[in-house]
Design a protein around this nucleic acid. Sequence first.
DNA 1: AAGTGGTCTAGACCACAAC
DNA 2: TTGTGGTCTAGACCACTTA
Lengths: 250, 250
Amino acid sequence: MDSGRKVARYKEIADYLRERIIDGTFPPGQPLPSEEQLAKEFGVTRPTVRQGIAELRAAGLVEVIMGRGMFVRSPHARPQLTRARGVRRDKTGHYTEADAIRWTTTDEPVATRTDAPVALADLLRIPPGEPMYTYDQHQTADHGRLRQLHRTYIPFSILVGTPYEDTAPPPAPALFTALESLGHELHFTEYVRTRMPLPDEATTLRLSEGVPLLHLLRLTLNQHDRPLALEETHIPGDDLELSYSLGPEA
Amino acid sequence: MDSGRKVARYKEIADYLRERIIDGTFPPGQPLPSEEQLAKEFGVTRPTVRQGIAELRAAGLVEVIMGRGMFVRSPHARPQLTRARGVRRDKTGHYTEADAIRWTTTDEPVATRTDAPVALADLLRIPPGEPMYTYDQHQTADHGRLRQLHRTYIPFSILVGTPYEDTAPPPAPALFTALESLGHELHFTEYVRTRMPLPDEATTLRLSEGVPLLHLLRLTLNQHDRPLALEETHIPGDDLELSYSLGPEA
DNA sequence: AAGTGGTCTAGACCACAAC
DNA sequence: TTGTGGTCTAGACCACTTA
């Protein structure tokens, strides 16, 4: 007979630990009881304990370090960093990022030719399969504590009849200065999505378990609302926030 | 001897399924082989198969329906909905949301009095513990397909010496019209974060496993950059994206 | 009734980290 | 060497869904 118990034993264990993590009884960084310990206390076997822990790992509430133990994370804490999203022009008219982070690109960026997949072609309002210059950059800053994957897409069709027809323009944000020199007046739309990372994304961005990523798509448009370029950025979703300034619009 | 094998059996199973989900061999909605089936094919026991599946669930790649089976989700698909973030003023000068979604609030919103926790006090630049009017709204739209949790915070100190000292102002966005009538010129800053939901958040927002949530904080400021109010919104992170328009700033 | 996933036991052996 | 988590077996029984 099992009717007396409504919740699974492993869920009781997960709830017990989660409550104390949320209410601060177990503060961030604190080592939690070992699996063996919890198994004894709750009168269950280790696999049952592990099932409970798996729930907390997937929720980003704990971090498990092999051979050392299980430690409290703090996914609800105020993020360490706020990244202002936007594009500025300095006194000389050059475009820079609003957050002024100085990225180091691992592996010098090289322009490659790719054909637009439907999802991107849609945003850029070009036919699917149309060739684009593509920069793929794995960037780090602050001594490796900040990481992001950044891609710049520029359709060939934007560049025909310009000095950049044969020599690729630079990746963003220097790209914007180049585009402006072609007579475009720029504005931008940024799209924000979130999802869990794939294993390789988790590895390159050094995401720990239960940490989602932010997926940004920034579209560059000219004064006729024609899409000129697209950037795609993948950012770790923990410990940072984005900020946008919203003026009231008429 | 285990030396010949580098990767765990359950990981092989997860990789096998993940690859085929990503490359489209198993399209969204497709039922995947049963646990029993996979156990037989890979020559392992069911718990091992389940460990592999747990990984895909946590990544939002599959959805398991009790008694029916396991089905492919599509967390990488273009979102169904784009929500333009921002605040507009219509012809009569009233403030409205840029996305023009017509929310239904379950349980009529009631202004309650709460004391500012440090995190919010910080943003509002008021002392921690200062009293605030608080509206807590669980909103749905599009026949329940859209859901969000929305909170509006207004510090008492903003309202002293105004007609709203005794009668609470309305929640946002009607709040903005009220604030403007007090002589404030408004602008806004929005902060975007992401994290995995807590169990109760997953329940109220009807999030399936492996789906992160978006956490928005929108600060209302006046012409002297004084914070007037704060809104906190929790939104499901799947199947929708936010959009922001970025003008180049000088 | 048959098929699906959900929970749990009671072990075993391994890999890694710290002492 | 000891303690930690990581992997896996070989079952058992239950709850839910569909036919």
